[in-house]
Design a protein around this nucleic acid. Structure first.
Length: 291
DNA sequence: CACTTGACCTGTCCGC
DNA sequence: TGCGGACAGGTCAAGT
């Protein structure tokens, strides 16, 4: 599931609800989601307080008072949902059916806090993971070390964007945008949306793109990511935020999952093709391969 | 080096 | 209704 805007939405929600909480118990229902023995988990998580929370690419990093860190990658179907015993959502609340039914059959880990609130890690497809890393292992953590820059950082200029793309100038643009080591955080939805907005075919080789096309892509990418964050992300299937709410960006999508619908610019029907073995949505008229 | 495929998993949807 | 296949927001390893 989650790409940058969804993970960022969860990051903000977790900051709001979880800072200062002390973990009192951890239950793991699927070993691979938190692949440590229970003794290790208890030793490093129980009585630890949540000091700060951050996002890097699609990963969430929770810093604990004991100098350990709890990391999450939600992959396709991961959810992190907070449930407080005090603030029950009443009937009719959009979150009601989701939250009050937890834990459910996709719950893989439950974190209990000392005020009786809980954090559920749900993951239908079991691809996601959580990790417990001390400061040293965090610094050496391959996944994070390989990540490219954050596209929404203030320092992430057009110049840097061009330099990142130049690292793979003989490759096709969509594969490169999906490569987390080039730029961190884009996934299938936001690459398709950004490329449509910039009128670039996903199979275009980077070398062939003009400077102005690349600038347009840079601006489109930032616009799409910022809009999505402001809408709480995309709930195409099962993405929900920390309190169980869906994101509404998908209502603004121009191509993603829009095959057969008219392009908003030229009315040509959007089509679905395969790129890097991912379903890819384009307007065949607006996004033509360059000669 | 660039690119594809299969693996990791569960669930839903569509056509027959 | 049942069954098989395609497909799903991500990443990694292995093969061409």
């Amino acid at each position: 599931m989650p790409e940058l805007p969804e993970v960022e939405t969860i990051n903000r929600g977790m900051k709001k609800y979880l800072i200062g909480k002390v973990i009192s118990k951890v239950e793991v229902d699927w070993f691979k989601s938190l692949a440590y023995d229970q003794k290790f988990i208890n030793k490093h998580l129980i009585n630890a307080r949540i000091d700060s929370i951050d996002r890097r690419g699609k990963v969430l990093i929770i810093s604990l008072s004991n100098n350990f860190n709890l990391l999450f990658h939600l992959k396709m179907t991961g959810q992190l949902v907070y449930k407080s015993d005090k603030e029950r959502f009443g009937a009719g609340h959009p979150s009601d059916s989701l939250i009050n039914k937890l834990p459910d059959k996709s719950t893989r880990i439950i974190f209990y806090f000392n005020d009786n609130s809980k954090l559920f890690f749900n993951d239908q497809r079991k691809f996601g993971w959580a990790k417990i890393l001390d400061q040293e292992s965090l610094k050496e953590f391959e996944y994070l070390n390989k990540l490219g820059p954050e596209p929404l950082d203030k320092d992430f200029s057009l110049k840097i964007f061009k330099a990142r793309l130049d690292l793979r100038k003989n490759s096709k643009i969509k594969s490169v945008l999906l490569d987390q080591s080039i730029i961190a955080g884009l996934g299938n939805i936001y690459t398709d949306e950004s490329l449509w907005m910039a009128k670039i075919h996903p199979l275009e080789v980077i070398n062939k793109l003009s400077q102005s096309r690349i600038q347009k892509l840079y601006e489109s990418m930032l616009e799409v990511l910022n809009l999505s964050i402001s809408r709480g992300g995309s709930s195409d299937r099962n993405y929900i935020d920390i309190v169980g709410k869906k994101g509404t960006y998908i209502d603004f999508a121009n191509v993603y999952k829009k095959a057969g619908m008219p392009c908003k610019r030229c009315s040509t029907n959007i089509i679905r093709i395969k790129v890097a073995s991912r379903g890819t949505h384009i307007c065949p008229k607006c996004q033509k391969l360059l000669k």
